[in-house]
Design a protein around this nucleic acid. Structure first.
Length: 604
RNA sequence: GGUCCUGUAGAACAGCCUGGAGUGUUCGCCGCCCUGUCAAGGCGGAGGUCGCGGGUUCAAAUCCCGUCAGGACCGCCA
């Protein structure tokens, strides 16, 4: 038996027991005579004491111990002497009196300290990720992730969902994000793509009669990275037959609520989640993923200025724009230069300008523009925003959508809790009634979600005449300003699907080459179906209270898509390229040669 | 493709604005001392391509240009 106990489990009640523990050396405190070693595993830490008189051989071994050596220690669990109990440690009432120590593995001095108090460079952390992962915070996150995943899986299985794996080497369907591609050796010159989501396959599973499908699916998108975006990521993907919006929302709520409960943060969410129409989100939060934690909503106060003499507002309103405002509670203590910086930021975001107002103790407004406003207008602002003394009010006069966008962005930047330790709880909601189409790059309609999203039945008669006004039967799950997932009721009738394809301007040939195998399958009895996908990394990110998705992925990639640990991506040798019939362009060869020179090692 | 921040000893930083000898702090590492610490303590020591390349200058960690790497963001992400 390698061990009888884990390091973190020993308590006063274990006193008197013989214990064998294994773990890494956290610290060694050598007093010349008595010597303490803190031994750590994923459960915690226990103090081991070595006395030269009690066990001279073990003491000699203990003296050699250094940070991160791997030890196996045996001895008696005993209460610590009076006055030496450590209340900061769960095991702090006891210690192990050493009878014997084995050094199972030595460790070189670490490239960085595991101490949580210093923030290590991310490149270095990823280069030595196994060490980084030894830190309690990351150990905790890995286990949190496993726990919430298991809970969500159980919740869906309880509803009769069946876990099915779908392929990762699939045909490229040139829509949406850029595909990662994989060359084929058996068919040189032909390529697989890695799925951006299992979308088509899960719909095929509905045709197959699986009825309720789910999968924790790895997905790949070859796009630039962000704090909440990795090129490979995990979705909790689900699809159900004979199901509509309410069914899907209920199941997703159950899975997500189970996950939140399993996280054990006391952040259980109240069901059902609130719902907000897409248009309201855009108007009142300037975003289709509103962060409900970031203070009050944006208010349209155009009516207050219907007859204003303040030129900037009057001309905007005349031109069909709007005046919108947002209030930052207790934000009025900002300095003039901080307020000027806000104006600059607003202009960066595309606003013509930004008006700030501070509500003084006597209720009056302090602002560079207040002299242009009537008493009634000033009162109108305060009333509409429910402004209190000490508040900061920001006004933007612009095209309505731009005004909301700018104020919404400032709202998040000024008032949203951010990052590890914010412990801000969770504010989740559904955003519904998305438009079916948005304006595409070529000016024509493009799918806002994907081309199989069912139009809102009430809007069907406007599909051809006014496509951009048609709402869809899709829904987004939003939490803390992050898009946590999206889904829709799918089109399952050929005539609606054809009308949508026609509006998207897809030719028969396009349709056949991109989605032919799905539509073929639909010819043989497709049940009405609907589904959803939850961005699982992001969900864990919220539960772990982390500001970066990299913190919840065991082996993430840097912003340039590199893995400093393995050195991926890396050049292939000519033989491997030849097997798949791939030849590098001259420019690419030059790039690799330069890389090789810089790194001073061969690339093949 | 673009904007911004960062890069100085094994780690985290200060120094840079306002050029003047690789100067400093904390941690780690090595040696010695130390019998109840828990971020142990005391004394001593080693450790540097100031990311890289170029330019300006009598003189560059410091100013300028380029480049690489890490990060934040815009574009992109049906």
């Amino acid at each position: 038996m390698m061990r009888t106990h884990t390091c973190g489990e020993l308590r006063a009640s274990d006193a008197g027991a013989q214990a064998v523990v294994c773990g890494w050396v956290e610290t060694v405190r050598d007093h010349g005579g008595v010597l303490f070693v803190d031994v750590r595993d994923h459960t915690g830490m226990v103090q081991v004491v070595a006395h030269p008189e009690e066990a001279p051989d073990a003491f000699a071994v203990a003296e050699k111990a250094r940070a991160e050596y791997v030890l196996r220690v045996h001895g008696e669990v005993r209460p610590r002497p009076d006055g030496t109990v450590n209340p900061d440690l769960p095991t702090g009432e006891v210690e192990i009196g050493v009878a014997g120590i084995e050094i199972l593995a030595r460790s070189e001095p670490l490239p960085f300290q595991l101490d949580e108090s210093v923030v290590t460079d991310e490149g270095l952390r990823l280069r030595y990720r196994p060490l980084d992962l030894r830190r309690p915070r990351l150990q905790h996150t890995l286990r949190l992730r496993a726990r919430v995943t298991a809970a969500a899986r159980a919740a869906l299985e309880a509803e009769g969902f069946v876990e099915v794996e779908t392929p990762t080497l699939i045909r490229s369907t040139p829509e949406g994000a850029r595909d990662f591609v994989v060359p084929s050796r058996l068919s040189p010159g032909e390529w697989y793509a890695l799925p951006q989501s299992p979308q088509l396959y899960k719909q095929l599973l509905m045709v197959a009669g699986v009825d309720r499908y789910f999968q924790f699916a790895r997905c790949w998108r070859d796009e630039d990275l962000r704090a909440d975006r990795q090129p490979e990521f995990t979705q909790l993907d689900l699809e159900a037959s004979f199901a509509e919006e309410e069914d899907v929302l209920t199941w997703v709520e159950a899975a997500v609520a189970a996950a939140f409960a399993a996280a054990g943060r006391g952040w259980e969410i109240e069901l059902p989640l609130p719902r907000m129409a897409w248009q309201e989100a855009i108007d009142a939060y300037g975003s289709d993923k509103p962060d409900l934690r970031a203070g009050p909503a944006i208010v349209d106060i155009s009516r207050v200025f219907a007859a204003t003499e303040f030129n900037a507002f009057a001309s905007t309103l005349e031109a069909g724009g709007a005046v919108r405002a947002w209030r930052l509670p207790r934000g009025g203590d900002r300095t003039r230069s901080q307020l000027d910086a806000l104006v600059e930021r607003a202009q960066e975001l595309g606003a013509k300008g930004l008006v700030w107002m501070v509500v003084e103790e006597d209720g009056s407004l302090r602002s560079p523009v207040v002299k242009f406003l009537t008493e009634a207008e000033q009162d109108g602002i305060k009333t509409a925003l429910e402004a209190e003394p000490g508040d900061l009010v920001l006004l933007a006069a612009d095209l309505a959508r731009l005004a909301s966008h700018v104020l919404g962005q400032l709202r998040v930047e000024l008032a949203a809790p951010r990052g590890h330790g914010a412990d801000s709880g969770v504010a989740a909601l559904w955003v519904v009634d998305f438009p079916l189409f948005e304006e595409g790059g070529d000016g024509g309609p493009a799918p806002a979600h994907h081309p199989f999203t069912h139009p809102n039945v009430e809007d069907l008669d406007r599909l051809e005449s006014d496509p951009l006004s048609v709402r869809s039967r899709s829904y987004d799950l939003v939490a803390n300003g992050l898009e946590l997932g999206s889904g829709s009721v799918r089109i399952h009738t050929a005539d609606v699907q054809e009308r949508v394809f026609r509006i998207l301007g897809l030719s028969e040939e396009d349709i056949h080459s991109r989605f032919g195998f799905l539509l073929d399958a639909f010819r043989y009895g497709v049940p009405p179906h609907a589904g959803f996908a939850v961005g699982w990394d992001r969900l864990v990110m919220i539960l772990a209270d982390e500001a970066s998705i990299r913190e919840v992925i065991a082996f993430p990639k840097t912003q340039t898509g590199a893995d400093p640990l393995s050195g991926a991506p890396a050049a292939l040798d000519a033989g491997q390229l030849g097997e798949v019939g791939v030849m590098l362009t001259p420019e690419t060869t030059v790039r690799l040669t330069e890389l090789e020179e810089r790194r001073g090692r061969p690339h093949g």
